[in-house]
């Protein structure tokens, strides 16, 4: 008997859109690969291919350096909806 796939097959969103470069200033695009605590989402959850995941990580780290997105969201400064904070 053929083994059935347990999860839905995931596609690399960036491959389908044929994106060559991920701009670190475009936060709306980066949000897809960020958790609600602004951690970088793993490849197994987003379905990104390795090539694009590498570009995403670089873009996210650059955005962090320039204070466009936070490094951490901790309990000291609680915000109700952290994703609305950056716009």
């Amino acid at each position: 008997m053929q083994e059935r796939r347990k999860f839905k097959k995931r596609f690399c969103k960036y491959c389908e859109a044929k994106i060559d470069l991920i701009d670190y200033k475009d936060i709306a695009q980066l949000k897809f690969s960020l958790s609600e605590r602004f951690k970088i989402m793993p490849r197994r959850l987003t379905g990104n291919c390795k090539h694009h995941q590498e570009m995403v990580t670089i873009a996210i780290k650059r955005a962090r350096q320039t204070a466009l997105i936070p490094y951490i969201v901790d309990r000291k400064n609680v915000v109700e909806s952290p994703l609305d904070m950056i716009k």
Partner: peptide
């Protein structure tokens, strides 16, 4: 000109900043 934006974390005690590329 990205204009005046809120910083994601305070930098040198500033909460906002004027971004230019």
């Amino acid at each position: 000109d990205m204009g005046m934006r809120k910083l994601a974390y305070p930098v040198e005690k500033n909460n906002r900043g004027y971004y230019t590329v």
